[in-house]
Amino acid sequence: MKRSMLVMVFVLLAVSASAEEKRYQVPLGDSPTLGPPDAAVTLVEFLDFQ
């Protein structure tokens, strides 16, 4: 039991270390949108047409 707890903690640490890349919160508002609203991946593009 103790051993499995220790393994759990180790796994959690490893996961958090590999996922430390910063994630920004971009408010979507009512901006133009293409694709399903419940899609697993949302890609927000800041663009200039020129």
Binding site: V26, L34, L43, E45, Q50
Partner: peptide, 28 residues
């Protein structure tokens, strides 16, 4: 990735280009 991805557009027209703003207006 059709069906798995959603695209959202934000306008960031550059101040010093001639047509950046009017093109954003045109899209909307």
């Amino acid at each position: 990735y059709q069906g798995k991805i959603r695209l959202v557009i934000k306008n960031y027209p550059y101040q010093y280009r001639d047509y950046s703003h009017i093109a954003a207006e045109a899209s909307l």
